[in-house]
Computed example of a mutant assay.
Amino acid sequence: MSWYNDFISKLIECRACPRLVSYRERVKPLPRFMNDRYWLRPVPPWGDLNNARIMIVGLAPAAHGGNRTGRMFTGDSSAQFLFRALYEAGLSNKPYSISRNDGVTLKCIYITSVVKCVPPNNRPSNEELHTCIGNWFRYELEHVGPRAIIALGHIAFLGIKLALGIRAEFRHSEYIDFNGIRIFMSYHPSPRNTNTGRLRIRDLVNILRMAMEYSGCEST
């Protein structure tokens, strides 16, 4: 898609937020990734660009996930949990997401984040959040045109609210409707939530299936 290619070429050159630029570029590789060349730029979204009925929205790239691999929800434990759920729901051809060359394909799914650069302590400032939404995320929403959105976590949901101009409270496993879009809410698949059982695979699979039913996406 022409809009997507143009979007990505501009996105990866963004230096609008000095604090985020500084942090993303000085992330030190973990010992097990010492031989990897880290991406260290704004991280591109990806997915089924021809039939993106469902948009999955995270907060921001992980320091040793997307910031390393150059693809959202790729190469970290949160990504593996999400892709196990996507696979079980019939939306991914593989139950993992480890690199840009792993052969993973998605059905009906477009994966992105409200903030495109890894923030210190996973906490963007309000100014950074608003900048990224205004420069990039709102544009994505307009051009992808999803029927359903899945917000992974409170701050992702906040970003969606700011982008769309809606008011609502985050409630895990519930949804709200806005102008024909159904917005589902889930806890983020971070180890803090998955290792404690706060978010289980079956919980996320159920949310994915609800989004599939609403958006008219059939599983493989």
Rank of each mutant, 00 (worst) to 15 (best):
N5S: 09
D6V: 06
D6R: 09
I12W: 08
C17A: 08
P18A: 09
L20G: 06
Y23T: 06
E25V: 06
E25F: 09
R26P: 03
R26D: 11
V27S: 03
K28A: 10
F33T: 07
F33Y: 14
M34I: 14
N35F: 15
V43H: 04
G47V: 06
D48R: 05
N51V: 07
R53I: 04
I54S: 03
I56Q: 05
V57D: 01
L59Q: 02
A62H: 07
H64W: 11
H64C: 02
H64K: 00
R68C: 05
R68F: 11
R71L: 09
R71F: 04
S77W: 02
S78I: 01
F81V: 02
L82I: 04
Y87D: 12
A89R: 05
A89W: 08
G90A: 06
S92P: 11
Y96K: 04
I98V: 12
G103F: 03
V104Y: 00
I109F: 06
I109M: 11
Y110W: 15
T112R: 04
V115W: 07
C117W: 13
V118D: 14
P119K: 04
N122I: 06
R123E: 13
R123P: 00
S125G: 12
E127Y: 07
L129V: 01
C132D: 12
I133F: 00
R138L: 04
E140M: 09
E142L: 08
V144Q: 05
A148Q: 08
I150V: 13
H154W: 13
A156Q: 07
I160T: 09
L162W: 07
L164R: 08
I166P: 14
I166N: 12
R167Y: 14
R167K: 15
E169W: 13
F170S: 12
S173T: 15
G180L: 07
I183T: 10
M185S: 12
Y187E: 15
Y187K: 13
N193R: 06
T196V: 10
T196M: 10
I201E: 15
V205I: 15
V205D: 15
L208I: 07
M212P: 05
C217N: 03
S219A: 11
T220S: 09
